[in-house]
Amino acid sequence: MNLFGMLELSGGAMSAERQRAEVVTSNMANAETTRTPAGGPYRRQLVIFSARRTPEFPMMLAGLRNASARGVRVDQVVSDPAPPLQRYQPGHPDADAKGYVAYPAVNPVEEMTDLLGAVRSYELNAAAVQAAKNMIQQSLDILR
């Protein structure tokens, strides 16, 4: 009865994981960026997920307000408060008076791990979509 809700739920999770992967990629791309529109070096971005109740139409129609299947969404994207790394490069145009350049505090190993996690979670939810599709197909087979 809420088979299509499952598709929506897992689909939402897939887009949340994709957004996480995008943010991680942007962190890696900007690992050496010393200039941003806001001034200063690039700040590492982090996504924060939160669970939400999905008020899908079919569920509300069936009076299933208390149905407890929960989707996920990206609650917010925050900047890592970690201080920038200081590297001694006196010749660099962005160096301060003492010759230090502020670089983003991005750890490539950490970002790669996060990226792998996002990709695996994406695959996981894709598997759940496949399961929901199979169940819908099987329900249709009753009619044959």
Partner: peptide, 26 residues
């Protein structure tokens, strides 16, 4: 069938929230 489908939606919801801090499996 209704219960199986409902359970499947709970499992999907648990999988969707595998990276949500503080989420409890249902």
């Amino acid at each position: 069938l209704d219960l199986s489908a409902y359970r499947e939606s709970l499992i999907s919801s648990n999988l969707a929230n595998i990276d949500t801090p503080g989420y409890r499996a249902r």
